[in-house]
Design a protein around this nucleic acid. Structure first.
Lengths: 199, 199
DNA sequence: GCGCATATTGTGGAAACCCGCAACCCTCGG
DNA sequence: CCGAGGGTTGCGGGTTTCCACAATATGCGC
């Protein structure tokens, strides 16, 4: 899915004008008249950002935001509101909203925010895919290989690992070689670098 | 310095009441009648959190916040204001303020926020001191040892390192052993773990 | 049952690593 | 001038790793 700005607002006029504004700047953009509609269309693979009205018939913007968060969405959310108050803004931002802007607002400013949000999402996605590719590699290991890997990462010698797992040193060497191969590294240090920050 | 809540407000009555409130809950607390006063007293070793009024004679709360950020302060800041507006709150939070609450506010709520902020600062400080102790170790290494360490962390064999540094393998072994000793590790993997996330 | 993946073990040798001992050179400070 | 600290090197020998070749056992799906 190519990145889009997803507009959710129950006011037809605002959706149309925002979507025109964003598209005139070359941004892809999709509109939804209610939080429920967007939620129905949402899936974790959607890329881009969300521009979300606060007050709507049915589900409110913040309610949608909460639900998306629970479902693991990382889509940056820009709240847009005509009658926001401070606690609402504070709450939204502390929960991780990308921005909170009041209508009416400067067009350029909103577009800039959307572009920033798209950029953030893009960055997150490359980071996530990096982490994911590592996890994919780990997933391909057999149990034994994972066990050995843990102990290797603990800096233990093959001899010690063999002892702890109650297997021969030779077997440890085999598992070690296999997992290095599968993880695409040639030394234990490279392995440690690859997994730096995880588990 | 033991952690304090630093109150900055130009209203004597508010300072007194807040400081009484916080101290009655067992929190240490210091008051300043102006941003300038706090700035004069500030130094990077201050631990705790800042409770900052927005509108004050002289330097405003946000101005003080900006200056502290520039100077590398990581003190969590809770903004307190009687007449805040949404853009102000949004701007403060996006710059990294810990919270933004409107006066008058529930006493318990404010105390809770202060406690959370103190906790955050505490956590940050332990993390920083961990990082710092590692840096201290690194600082004790000789140039050569640092060079060798870099290459070891790149997963290179002693032979290769010797070649790149144009020295004999024996010398690499010596530096390697010395730096392991100084860093308090016994294997290259432990070293990689220790420096995970840095340089 | 056969093929395949996984786990296991052994032998033996090459390569890499670890380390004590000994030594030389240089620079800097007392 | 001499000692201390850092950088350098060689030798010898033990330890560990790496790997090719070879083999056995278990479980799983077709």
């Amino acid at each position: 899915m190519t990145p889009h700005a997803y507009l959710v607002d129950d006011d037809d006029a605002i959706r149309d004008s925002l979507s025109w504004l964003l598209e005139s700047r070359g941004l892809h953009c999709l509109s939804y008249p209610s939080a429920e509609d967007f939620l129905a269309a949402w899936d974790p693979s959607l890329a881009g950002c969300l521009v979300l009205d606060i007050r709507m018939d049915g589900m409110s913007g913040p309610e949608l935001f909460d639900i998306l968060c629970e479902r693991g969405s990382t889509l940056p959310v820009i709240f847009l509101t005509g009658h926001g108050d401070v606690p609402m803004a504070v709450s939204a931002l502390k929960k991780g909203a990308f921005d909170f802007v009041e209508k009416p607002c400067n067009d350029n400013e909103l577009v800039d925010r959307v572009i920033e949000a798209l950029k953030l999402d893009e960055n997150r996605r490359v980071a996530a895919s990096d982490a994911d590719s590592v996890n994919t590699l780990i997933a391909r290991l057999t149990c034994r290989e994972r066990e050995v890997m843990e102990l290797v990462l603990a800096g233990k010698l093959n001899k010690v690992i063999a002892d702890e797992l109650q297997i021969s040193m030779r077997t440890v060497e085999v598992h070690r070689a296999n997992l290095f191969e599968k993880m695409g590294v040639r030394t234990a240090v490279e392995l440690a670098q690859l997994l730096a920050g995880k588990r």
